[in-house]
């Protein structure tokens, strides 16, 4: 029995290692998509009927292309940047929505809510206030992780829109979609 016991753990471990597939040659890689690269810096929204979206195409990023064929999962997501409330009379609450199929950019709050899915937020900024949104804070604000992950694991192309729930006069600068992917062979 003891002789068998000596083999039990190593054999179990080897079996599990083999069963778990490509875990030995894999890594986690950061894919930063800068809004400025698609001319969306700053993103200024003046009203619910004059939205300005961001056409995300991760295929423009080398790290994503290098690992797209062996992409296994998306393990971290964050929307970074500075959010400024341009309304001096009221606080602002902002959410980010995703429209899966890129195409003609939508311009109204109603159209985005009809065609998209909420993926992030809300975050609140006081009247005339400004807020830097950091990686840790942002990572905790994702509510639609699966929808976004599916797109990143898919063709990597989708549109993002910032919607205001309270005020509707704001600006986003230095916006970045920070994605961490797991890839392995």
């Amino acid at each position: 029995m003891i002789k068998n016991l000596r083999l039990w753990l190593p054999v179990t471990m080897l079996a599990a290692l083999i069963a778990s597939g490509c875990m030995l040659v894999s890594g986690q890689f950061i894919v930063p998509f800068k809004f400025i690269d698609v001319g969306a810096d700053p993103v200024t929204v003046d009203s619910a009927t004059s939205l300005s979206g961001v056409a995300v195409d991760l295929n423009t990023i080398d790290v994503y292309n290098d690992h797209k064929s062996d992409l296994k999962d998306v393990v971290d997501l964050a929307l970074l940047g500075n959010l400024t409330n341009l309304d001096s009379g009221a606080g602002l609450t902002v959410e980010v929505w995703m429209v899966r199929t890129p195409g003609t950019m939508l311009t109204t709050d109603t159209a985005v809510r009809a065609a998209g899915v909420k993926v992030w937020g809300p975050v609140t900024v006081a009247a005339s206030g400004s807020k830097n949104i950091g990686w840790d804070e942002s990572a905790a604000l994702f509510t639609g992780r699966k929808a976004l992950i599916d797109e990143i694991k898919g063709d990597g192309r989708f549109d993002l829109y910032a919607l205001g729930n309270n005020g509707y006069h704001f600006r986003i600068t230095k916006g970045i979609l920070m994605t961490v992917i797991s890839a392995g062979k």
Partner: peptide
């Protein structure tokens, strides 16, 4: 090796 789905940390 921390196994996370098809990949690992």
């Amino acid at each position: 090796t921390v196994v996370d789905g098809e990949a690992s940390r």
